[in-house]
Write a protein that binds this DNA or RNA. Structure first.
Lengths: 141, 141, 141, 141
DNA sequence: GTGGTCTAGACCACG
DNA sequence: GTGGTCTAGACCACT
């Protein structure tokens, strides 16, 4: 199974964090189902051509977050989806991210219209990316 | 006048970067007017209880960005606003920030409507902050 | 490969800035190819006999300019060339440099013809430098 | 006599150096004749609203360069024009300045045509500035 | 007094 | 091993 993960060596964001985000997203959009098993650390490390420690760290992080769980001796699995954050925390996080976008927009002299428009196109870009991945999955089966 | 800067040593975002953002914000919002002088490096370092080099680095960053200017032997001042980035670079940066917001929203199960709505309220919050500051200034006179 | 960097402690131009210019030049001229890794901060600091912080500062400056990029834990690399400045900013900077040349010419009693002629020969000197470097590369292969 | 000097407080180039350059230029274009006396330090300091030390330092610099001479008790005068630099030194300096302009142009992706064109317009800007000053002088007389 | 630069040495995150 | 950040303390140029 290709999960369509793609790590960019030419990025300043740490590899393990890129991986964390992509697994989070794959789970969120249902590309990896609840209960499904993830590739073994060494396998994924070889596929992505990264250090096994890096993959292990990403898995660790996600286990801590409750997205994955390790069943000893059998591997790492996607846990049942649960609401980790309270409504308040959820909103706090969204506001935090939105605040950063607003800050950047303010710095660059963008108005609300432009900012909203960029948000929308970026959003649609993400949805298409997700759709393409699932259709790839469908064809493979 | 206290500029109300507040740095958190516990945060994972570097002190000098926290300072950069707060100064950017203060300038954008009119809390520090164009042409106005910023606190001396050593003074600000003392009030924030950080190393003078750290403050100097934040000032440097903002000078390179064209937000501040250094007048030798006299201090650091707010410059007239100017657009230094190309359209391409500007869009690259906006997309980057928008992408992060989208990711966070996806992780938290928010849809486009909710995300856009949060963006809008956050945006208006910023605008009010600006308005309040200018009215504060007016009262002082 | 020695990159042939040379810093002069006696010069009134700061060490980190001397370094910035030489790296800019080396990249522009193709002496360091896109994607290539630069010497480690500590290594370059040792060979140039300067403080690692000074080298790091030069790298930082170039990262902000978009010439280099830092890949966490792995080193600093040359990025693909991109235009980050607006047309206005670009022209502002060119006029600034041109103004200095004109001033110097005026001081030395040179007329426009002589100045323009010197500009052209200097320019061609740079182009040859670039050409020679790429041919050196070709020979290596 | 207004010499048309203008110092910009909002510049990162030191005031005394701005003054040095403007006096150099005024002498070079004949706005101040050989043998003519310059304003007393205190007078010029008051006119420009700068520290007398700053003016004194500029005069000092120019005396060292041989542009001005101090006649004890009577003031500071423009010296007979003489060739300070050898031809070799003169060319070295021009090449140095031209090299800096070429470097900046290279960094900003400008070609020779654009660079030459900017040189020419900047040059003409300077000539006009000089002409306007002398005509002002003529009217005053 | 102002900022700018440099050194030295330390600690952290990443791979 | 890599770079990133921070502190401490020094010296310099400018006003």
């Amino acid at each position: 199974m290709s999960l369509g993960f793609h790590i960019s060596a030419a990025s300043d964001v740490p590899i393990f964090r890129q991986l964390v985000r992509q697994i989070q997203r794959a789970v969120a959009v249902g590309q990896i189902a609840i209960g499904e098993q993830l590739p073994a650390v060494r396998v994924l490390a070889e596929t992505l051509i990264v250090n096994p420690n890096t993959v292990a760290r990403a898995y660790q992080e996600l286990i801590r977050e409750g997205v994955l769980e390790s069943r000893s001796g059998r591997g790492v699995f996607v846990t049942e989806r649960r609401q980790i954050y309270s409504d308040a925390e959820r909103e706090r996080r969204l506001r935090e991210s939105a605040g950063q976008l607003c800050h950047e927009a303010l710095m660059l002299g963008a108005d609300l219209n432009e900012t909203r428009s960029i948000l929308e196109t970026t959003w649609k870009g993400l949805r298409n990316e997700a759709r393409n991945n699932s259709s790839t999955e469908r064809k493979r089966k």
